[in-house]
Amino acid sequence: MAKKKFVLHFPEESVEKPVTYHLVKDYNLIPNILRAQIDENEGTLVVDLQGSAEQIDRGVIFLKDQGVGIQEAIQDLVINRDRCVDCGSCTGVCKPGALAIGPDDWELKFDLDKCIFCELCINTCPTRAIKVQF
């Protein structure tokens, strides 16, 4: 079993399609929706897809056929250690706990696996040390 994180972008014409149902029913995948958001431009879904590597690949092809924009989890959060002062402000808005500080050295740690790319930390960081990398 493999697990991969994707950011899915739904243009207006794709929002009506029940893609998650098809990923489960037709491709035998276990989707775990980490974050869902609809704004004036598009719908965004951050999702973990669990299944065999082949099933995930087939699911991705299906999504592309449906007109869904797919960003594989190549997105990263980069912390500029020269700017970061280890204050910990960012950890206050990080609900999944990807950014954490304490309990011993009180240095900021980041765990990409837990990150759901909500980007709340970007503006919260007082020294502007956190950037999203696409």
């Binding site: 204050c87 910990g88 009180w106």
Partner: peptide, 21 residues
């Protein structure tokens, strides 16, 4: 410093603003 406190029975995540490091 433990990372969470209770307020009105709800567990609330705590975060520092000043750097202990």
């Amino acid at each position: 410093r433990s990372g969470k406190i209770e307020i009105n029975g709800k567990t609330v995540r705590t975060a520092p603003i000043s750097s202990l490091n």
